[in-house]
Amino acid sequence: MTSHPAETGPQDATGWPRIRTVGVVGLLVSFGDQLTEPANRAALALRAAIEAEGWDGVEECSTSLVSAYVRFDPLWINHSDLQNHLRRLLDSRDWYQADLPQGRRLWRIPTVYGTDLAPQLSEAAQAAGLTEAEAIASISGTRVRVQTIGFAPGQPYLGALDEAWNIPRQKTLTERVPEGALTVAIRQLVLFSVSTPTGWRHIGQTAFRLFRPEADTPFVLRPGDEVEFQPTTPEKLAAMRQDGPDGGAMSEKIT
């Protein structure tokens, strides 16, 4: 046989939210095919609700930008029963109106923009139609929100930036960006938790460690947290790096 749709279950007139299978042991509830704030909040809220339900056979949940993912044991609960559970939960309220998670924090993370620590600032600014100074002012002046954690441990996707930053990823990959690299594409920032190749442009460098496997709180940022990337100098950053894994960052509760 060839392809058959991975999608299952009824849809409403808009087609969203949709429930689809992921491999053999996963279901995904998606609230759209584009990143919007309501879809992002819906995904976060649905994940929390699924975890609160505690259905037998569900092994873990996560969110991506606009979806909630459920991994389960199909030998324990079958696909159609779990889909019915999810459908009932979806029908119980308007998820697009959901509030952001509780206990959110605002982080201010010192960032060196440009210099040889972050060599693609001018290239990115040019792609956005801005001078370097305008680019730094735009990004450091925007309080961005953690939309999801993913790809690598503790690594946030943050947004949304001004429309000017709707720039594509690079066609060819940068061979390696260091841990703590601040990168930009498609109105989002990614702050890297590991050193890795990437198609995102490297515009800033921080000394903030996102993943601390040895610590009581191994993952520092959570979806819904907000971040300001405040400009600093290479000399100050080097000094703050010595002070510990926060790299000079400060946080406060959002009330």
């Binding site: 873990e60 991994r71 954690i149 441990p153 993943f211 993952f219």
Partner: peptide
């Protein structure tokens, strides 16, 4: 390590 997908691990 199951349980850390939501944290990117």
């Amino acid at each position: 390590r199951p349980g850390y997908l939501g944290f990117g691990l």
